[in-house]
Design a protein around this nucleic acid. Sequence first.
DNA 1: GCCCCGGATGTTTGCGCTAACAATCGTCAG
DNA 2: CTGACGATTGTTAGCGCAAACATCCGGGGC
Lengths: 382, 382
Amino acid sequence: MQILAGDRAPVMADVARVAGVSQQTVSRVLNERPNVRPATRVRVLEAIRELGYRPNAAARTLVTRRTNTLGVISFNTTLYGPASMLYAIEQAAKQHDYFVTVAALAAMDRRSVFEAVERLRDQAVEGIIGIAPQTAAVKILAAMPAGVPLVAVGCGVHAALSAVAVDNEAGAERATSYLLDLGHRTVHHLAGPRTWLDAQEREAGWRRALTARGAATPEPFPGGDWSARTGYELGRRIVADQSVTAVFCANDHLALGLIRALQAAGRHVPDQVSVIGFDDIPDAEFFGPALTTVRQDFDELGRRALLALIRSIGSTGSTGSTGSTGSTGSTGSAGSIGSIGSTGPAGATGGGARGSTARAANPVAVVNPTLVVRASTARPRH
Amino acid sequence: MQILAGDRAPVMADVARVAGVSQQTVSRVLNERPNVRPATRVRVLEAIRELGYRPNAAARTLVTRRTNTLGVISFNTTLYGPASMLYAIEQAAKQHDYFVTVAALAAMDRRSVFEAVERLRDQAVEGIIGIAPQTAAVKILAAMPAGVPLVAVGCGVHAALSAVAVDNEAGAERATSYLLDLGHRTVHHLAGPRTWLDAQEREAGWRRALTARGAATPEPFPGGDWSARTGYELGRRIVADQSVTAVFCANDHLALGLIRALQAAGRHVPDQVSVIGFDDIPDAEFFGPALTTVRQDFDELGRRALLALIRSIGSTGSTGSTGSTGSTGSTGSAGSIGSIGSTGPAGATGGGARGSTARAANPVAVVNPTLVVRASTARPRH
DNA sequence: GCCCCGGATGTTTGCGCTAACAATCGTCAG
DNA sequence: CTGACGATTGTTAGCGCAAACATCCGGGGC
């Protein structure tokens, strides 16, 4: 109604007036609909530029019911792994024209997870990625009637929850076997926090390797967290045991602390004790000595999780049938959206998406870690 | 109009019907407006619970023009500092009922920064925090007609850009002075990437300390990035110079690499060469030897940046005058919003908010780093 | 007893956009 | 030359919500 552009941000009607077309035609141009004469399109685009018009996302969302926003739940994005995954997720999301909203968990309990999910749903995210490697978090997430597609990443495989996981067990087994191959009678384990699935799986892999090779299975040293400090403190207990010649640590930070404790006690690494870590953080190569470790490809994990989620969203969205609605066309990478939208439903859930909110009950992908051998491991001296 | 709840998510009208009130009354209850009889409120809340009603954020945004969303631009959230700040920002945002959307920079150039800002503005964020410590990023951000409140964090002080900064120069000066106090004739510097303000400021602080004490100022070793690998490679050049007895590194990772290079060359740390870092990452204490470093309080930085941004938003928002609109009351922490909304405008800009988008031209806060002395530094042997 | 006032609630309107339908224009087969 | 058809554009309706205004009701001052 207002004729004067009284300081308010321009809206579509303003653009329409300037371009001399109807508001709907402006909408068509913006959404890259067919059947707009090139000349008209140009006029509209010029008007948009002239006015500095910017579409109102809320209004569009209100009618299309699409927010183009994904949520990421994470417990502690300060750790290298989660930070890397978050980063990779955002990068990938951008390419698919999605926004990423983060929700950090205040604490690791049902209430916090619930609140985080609620928070994201309040913002109407189209899907959620949970970077929550703790057992508790996974359980809670799996039990949560999310109402939106949900993918967990780096948290093992759990029924009723789509997941992109690292094969921690295989990695741990490989690391342990490697130490046994070097001639160690057995391998001790400095475990991660028992509440984390990664910790559990790595311990399981370590046990399996020892059992398979007929080696004794010493009591693992239970870690409280993933920090170097903990590694150091447990290390002081480990040094008391002269029979320890090889230790598989649940992550690199623990290994760092352990190495320090060993050295403080006058034990040489690797000549007297071999140490192996997990993750291959960038610093690991420069520990003294350089750390043999199991590398995880966090970027790949993040990327795959995102793809899995988008596929899941594609198969949920009831508006997907027309196909043309796939191109929300804001910046132009509609092609990639289309490809996901079209291959997703066919490949994943068989197109049968039964009304209810889809949440594939199977793991989506498993990424394999690789052993990186460096100076912190060596043949034992007998 | 629809009588049957045909599978669609319930809307306010559905709640109203169930509660036997008008839709507007439901709205009043949700927004914690006065003048609703307690009994009515209870009926409405029960209906909400019964239906599992969830307010539609887009619709609310459309009419209130508030998205309750903030954007965070960051170049690399994998690094410890940025990751910590992002984490702190999210935690603080949650308490003030804001969502946080992240936008990672694809590359460090004008175009990428511009795109990130545009991306966030497309999503109608109410304000932006830039974690962009590079000189280039700051310049671009400062020059950008953001259209929304913008606060930079950890990026020095720049006119025309609100900023929450660490006093890198003071920290570097302190570290350098400390080494001089120990008796070192001079202190060498392993610099960070020149494109980062932090690197520049730390180098400046180092220079200033040397000059102030009348010590020689050797050519700094220019770092390409912040990694241990770079520290190691530069370290191999440093070991060639037997006169080096103390090195101030621009961050902890560089220091780690340097220490490794020194040890590989048979130089003892700290007996022959003292090394000092910057940041105090959690691992630093467990480097071999434990690293003396300058601690930054990233959490505090993030928190302050968020507060500065919210204050800035408060002084921009034209709807703030009524006061009652401050409580968008979704989860109940309306109190904190109210306090910000009311103290912000008064305390910051004196209530005179002159129409145009506010962007305070002055630094908002400076956080002081502290020296943490550990084993990697010692008196030189003469 | 009448009027006025303020608390409680209802009704109407419009935020900016897209979907669905309607209208217009030119073109081409018959 | 006419009618139909497709390409292009316009018109109307409504997404879910909150603001503004209207209405209703009970109680107190006179």
